[in-house]
Design a protein around this nucleic acid. Structure first.
Ligand SMILES: [Zn+2]
Ligand SMILES: [Zn+2]
Ligand SMILES: [Zn+2]
Ligand SMILES: [Zn+2]
Lengths: 160, 160
DNA sequence: GACAGGACTGTTACGTTGTAACATCCGTCC
DNA sequence: GGACGGATGTTACAACGTAACAGTCCTGTC
C-alpha cells in the first residue's frame, strides 16, 4: 500500500494524490480479499473522493449518471453499501452523506470533525479518544460494537 | 426541579416517574425562559417519553394523531424542533429518531448507548469522555460545537 | 455444449424522513 | 380597531432509502 501523506481535509493540498492513493489502496484490498471492485464501484468510490466534503447519495447519483445513463438510486446505494462493507468509505450519520475513508484496511468506526462553515470533514484516528469511548461504555456495563463520533464546529482555517 | 433517580434505560423501573419528572422539568424550564410549552408540544414530549427507545417522527405522528386529528408532519417536526432547541429531547442521528433528554437544563450534546437487541438507549453524561472529545478536537486544531456520540452494541442485560 | 448457480446490474415502484410555502387563528400592544 | 408576532393548519413536495423481480455474465459441472 502506498505511503499516505498526512493531509488535513481543510488545507490546500494535491488532492489528486488523495484520490490516486485511495483508489490504489482499494484495488489492493479488494484483490487481497477476493471481492470485486467493479468499474461501477470504483467509479462511485472515485466520485465520493472528489472532495473532502461528505457527499449525499443522490449527489453521487447525479455525478454517476453523467457517464452511466442507467444509474438509478439502487445502483448507487448498492455500490455505497459494498464500499462501506469493505471499509472504503464511511457514512456521516448527521449529514446522511458519505466520505472516503483515510484508513481503509484498518477496521474502525470513524471519528469525524465536520466544519459547518466550509463543509470539509476530517477523519481522525485518535487512540486516546477510542480508549475514552471504550471506558465510558465499560463504566455503563455496555458492550460497544459500532461507535459514531461526529463533531461539528469550525476547522482551523474557518475558526480564524 | 425534582430530584432525578439514577435509572438505567434497560432496567425495569417505575417509568411513570421518568415521564412525570421530565414533564415537570420541562414546564419549569420553559416558564423560566419565557417560552411556551403549549399543550401540543407537551403532548409530543410525553409521547417521546413513552419509552427509553428512540422514536421516529412518523411514529410520534401516529400516536399524536389519535388525539389530535389535524396532526401532520409539520405539526410533529415543529414540536420536535422546539423541544430540541430547548434541550428537552435529542435526535439520535444514526436512527433518525428522537429521545427524551435526562439532563434537560444543562446544555450538552448527548452521548448515547444504543442497544441493538432491545433498542433501549441510555443517555450518559460522562465528563471524562467529554474531556477526551475536546482534547481530540483540540489536537486537530478544531473548535467543536456540537458533538454526536452514539455507541451501538449490547446493553448489560442483553450482553448476557 | 447444456445447464445450474452465483454475483452483479437494470428497472420499476414504493416507503420513509423531512421541509417549503402560504393560510389561519389568537393574544398583545399601540 | 389594526398591526404584530407566535403558534398551528394545510397542501404539496423534496430528499433519502429499499423491495422485488428481471436480465446479464461468468464459472463449474455433467
Ligand atoms: Zn485531498
Ligand atoms: Zn475511516
Ligand atoms: Zn424510565
Ligand atoms: Zn441530554
Amino acid at each position: 500500500m502506498a505511503a499516505r501523506a498526512a493531509v488535513h481535509a481543510h488545507t490546500s493540498h494535491n488532492h489528486r494524490a488523495c484520490i490516486d492513493d485511495a483508489l490504489a489502496t482499494a484495488r489492493g484490498l479488494c484483490a487481497e480479499r477476493g471481492v470485486q471492485l467493479t468499474p461501477l464501484r470504483e467509479k462511485v468510490l472515485q466520485i465520493v473522493w472528489r472532495s473532502h466534503k461528505p457527499m449525499g447519495a443522490y449527489e453521487v447519483l447525479d455525478e454517476l449518471a453523467r457517464s452511466h445513463k442507467s444509474a438509478r438510486p439502487p445502483t448507487v446505494y448498492r455500490a455505497l453499501d459494498f464500499l462501506m462493507a469493505e471499509g472504503l468509505i464511511h457514512k456521516i450519520e448527521s449529514l446522511n452523506a458519505y466520505l472516503g475513508c483515510i484508513e481503509a484496511g484498518a477496521p474502525h468506526s470513524g471519528q469525524f470533525l465536520i466544519c459547518r462553515q466550509c463543509g470539509a470533514t476530517e477523519e481522525i484516528v485518535d487512540p486516546r479518544l477510542e480508549t475514552a469511548l471504550e471506558a465510558a461504555a465499560g463504566r455503563a456495563h455496555f458492550r460497544p460494537e459500532r461507535k459514531v463520533v461526529e463533531i461539528s464546529g469550525l476547522c482551523a482555517r474557518c475558526g480564524k
